[in-house]
């Protein structure tokens, strides 16, 4: 009896969630849109801020992985629960699990998005937000090689974008950015939405270091896709430096950066965690806190550095400038 679930089962859980709620963790849309409460949007230009749900989900990923591992233990370990039944129970368990996630954690991630909102507004951008209708891009399904499931998500999101007359998206994480920029046009007929990461849009000089978190030196961690595929390493540093942050370079940086391990956190959390711990040591050696610009890096490295005890504090660029 194998100790672990097959990849179809693991991805299947996320797919089931995606179909039900529009995101792979099965969070309800209102929760994902909570950051926008009380904020004003203006969608008249056809430009929208697209969160892809990644920052919001990062607060819950820990609980989700824990649930998956428990499911794995109960089904694959031969306790006798059928998979379908177990999945059903998992669905029920998820909502109670999520409600136990520290509010502080959820608020922290929501704050990151609110901060981007503020920066954009301050630089004169007008944009809309899809609210609780915003759908996940499906990037995970693509990355896991589930192409038709990805296509399903891509078409669903595209329909939504077309219905709302979206012409341009300002994105905030490297994964959603790259998938929309480079993969959507291959999977969706005539996908012509312009996609820009916020670092391409915002002027580096337009932000300053915010609150006490911004003290000291930051070891810059380049998110893989941000550095290698989007080519935004210079812009990222420029942004941090012009805001008044002091930065240090770890041994592996820019295009030679070392992954946080996050992309396989759902299917092989222990391998993912070991990689994250290795990166934490590298960042720790560079000195100071660790700076990231990606929700996956933020949660995966944050968790691993905490586990290590001696690891650096991990913060997102959007937590320390404002």
């Amino acid at each position: 009896m194998p100790q672990f679930l097959g990849v179809e089962d693991l991805v299947g859980v996320m797919l089931q969630n995606q179909r039900k709620t529009g995101n792979p963790l099965g969070l309800d849309g209102a929760r994902l849109a909570r950051w926008a409460q009380g904020l004003k949007f203006n969608a008249s230009s056809g430009t929208y801020l697209y969160t892809g749900g990644l920052y919001q989900m990062a607060a819950y990923i820990d609980s989700f992985i824990e649930a998956l591992e428990r499911l794995e233990g109960s089904v694959a370990g031969g306790v006798g629960l059928g998979l379908v039944k177990a999945l059903g129970r998992l669905g029920i368990n998820l909502s109670s699990l999520y409600s136990s996630v520290a509010e502080k954690e959820a608020v922290r991630y929501e704050g990151i998005i609110r901060n981007l909102y503020t920066l954009l507004v301050r630089q004169g951008y007008e944009f809309g937000f899809l609210g609780s209708d915003e759908q996940y891009s499906g990037v995970l399904f693509y990355d896991m090689g589930f192409d038709s499931e990805f296509q399903e998500s891509a078409e669903r999101l595209t329909r939504m974008l077309r219905d709302r007359g979206v012409k341009r998206l300002i994105t905030m994480d490297p994964h959603s950015t790259l998938i929309l920029k480079e993969v959507y046009p291959k999977f969706v007929d005539a996908f012509d939405v312009e996609v820009n990461h916020y670092l391409e849009v915002l002027e580096p000089g337009g932000a300053t270091r915010s609150d006490k978190l911004a003290d000291g030196v930051f070891a810059v961690h380049d998110p893989c896709l941000l550095a290698r595929n989007l080519g935004l390493s210079d812009r990222y540093r420029d942004f941090a430096l012009k805001a008044g942050l002091k930065i240090a370079e770890p041994q592996l940086s820019r295009r030679s950066t070392f992954c946080c391990g996050g992309p396989i956190e759902n299917i092989a959390p222990r391998v993912s965690g070991a990689i994250a711990e290795k990166r934490c040591s590298q960042l720790g050696e560079a000195g100071g806190a660790a700076l990231v610009a990606c929700p996956i890096c933020l949660s995966n490295l944050g968790r691993a550095c905490k586990r290590k005890g001696s690891g650096p504090r991990v913060v997102d660029l959007l937590e320390v400038v404002g």
Partner: peptide
């Protein structure tokens, strides 16, 4: 195929 799922897609290799 079973080995492929551990790839992070981080593109360090391509680089």
């Amino acid at each position: 195929n079973p080995l492929s799922y551990f790839c992070l897609g981080c593109n360090a290799c391509n680089e």
